[in-house]
Write a protein that binds this DNA or RNA. Structure first.
Lengths: 254, 254
DNA sequence: CGGTTGTTTGACGCAGTTCAAGCGGAGTGG
DNA sequence: CCACTCCGCTTGAACTGCGTCAAACAACCG
């Protein structure tokens, strides 16, 4: 189960925790390309963790335009927020055929009551995703087309590597240029030109659903990419401050 | 204390809860305009709740440009995430002189262990802020200058009203046009032109640090503003699923 | 082999940037 | 009380990055 792999990056799990996770997310559902996993406005009936495939969070505008606001990767739980908030404020769609492990809200609640440390780790990821959103605002607000796409490629490289899906310099990126344009806020035509420019500059190649980065430093420089906001290297803070069930090191006072 | 007012919008607090909040956030600090409350990269020593004044979260690019990614309003706690994540990934700055109620991490931890419902309510706000970030991505990515600024004014109108700081059609907005440009990802010059256009269209007036909305429907239409993502009207979900201390209605199964 | 979906290329136009300068108000020091 | 300065707002003119429109091309699929 990919969630396990992802969580263990930060801190090892006990066998109990692992089997509880497996039991909770036992059901697997498959979604086809262009299907919506969760629709804007609904209150979803399940909690889902991506196992494989590419999905996105997106919001649609009146004029029929779309903006992709993030790409949850395998191992990510993509609707934890529905625990806290009544309705979805965006849509989660499959960009490729994908497999998702689902659990009922009740089951996840039980899981995290039994293993509070797991709850903490899941929520940590949700908080980090907030940080990713902030960086996307910067990306769309203040970077030009070339910088934007370079930055996106860098971010995905780091995150794909983190979950073990990158293979050296390359990782699967089965997105259409239309998808990239929705993620960067550009037009399809311009994304095409930018990608070709990046190719011509020997920074990347992108073909057959796979992105290869030939010059990481160059690409990161173009995108102004600094990985801090992904909080990858941060030491695990397994202690969730908001349930009062366990003890741990404190980050003391003012 | 403004946090109390804000939390009570959702669900009334007991006298115990209120006095505990007051005790925890007893210390008040004042910051001058252009001072940083929290700096990118640091691990802050306190948790802060804005009492009055205008602050922003911002990220700086290499070229000296800035992007404002949100405006925490009075009653908002603006660095809860430092409970979970080692370092700040952005800077929080004062846009006007402001007052902030501060507490140590340890004190907030104690507070939420004693009153888990409070912890749940605080974190709910953090999750909702994530939703606001997503909408900002859309704003910067897919809306033109006029739409963007209109949307921003609408969002602030709703949120200022929510915390009781709006006065009918108008609310305090003591930002420079440079600030607005950093929030919208536009140039100062263009913000100026757009604002004047909105004025000329009798949608708003903006002067002396105060924004007045003359035609709400018109402005919301221009900005493509739909308030759902702010989750203002959602019924309170006081039960935080991740501490297992209290019971509550469940949102049942798959 | 034709239809559909995705990529590529070119020509053109415009929204928004940049540069530059003028203007008004608020604060400060003489 | 005036003079000077600083900061924020406003305006104009010129430039450009990116969008739009249109069409050709390539790959996949039934």
């Amino acid at each position: 189960l990919d969630i396990i792999r992802k969580l263990e990056l930060r801190s090892p799990l006990s066998t109990d925790e692992k089997s509880a996770l497996r039991a909770t997310f036992a059901t697997v559902r498959t979604f086809d390309r262009d299907q919506d996993l969760l629709t804007d406005g609904e209150h979803p009936a399940f909690v889902g963790a991506l196992l494989e495939g590419f999905i996105c969070r997106q919001k649609a505008l009146a004029a029929g335009q779309r903006q992709i606001v993030s790409f949850p990767l395998p191992g990510d739980i993509f609707d934890l927020n529905t625990f806290v908030v009544e309705r979805m404020d965006h849509t989660v769609s499959a960009l490729t055929r994908c497999r998702v492990a689902v659990a009922s809200h009740a089951a996840v609640r039980t899981l995290t009551e039994t293993y509070p440390r797991l709850g903490a780790m899941l929520w940590r990821d949700a908080i980090v995703e907030g940080s990713v959103f902030r960086e996307w605002v910067v990306n769309c607000g203040r970077r030009n087309a070339r910088e934007r796409t370079a930055h996106l490629f860098c971010e995905l490289a780091v995150r794909m590597t983190e979950v073990g899906l990158a293979n050296g310099q390359s990782y699967p990126l089965p997105l259409t240029q239309a998808n990239l344009s929705d993620a960067t806020g550009l037009s399809v035509v311009h994304v095409n030109r930018v990608v070709q420019q990046l190719r011509a500059d020997k920074l990347i190649s992108l073909a057959k659903g796979r992105l290869t980065i030939h010059d990481w430093n160059g690409l990161a420089l173009v995108g102004g990419f600094r990985a801090g906001y992904l909080h990858s290297g941060d030491k695990a803070r397994a202690r969730w401050p908001f349930h009062g069930l366990d003890q741990g090191e404190g980050d003391a006072a003012a």
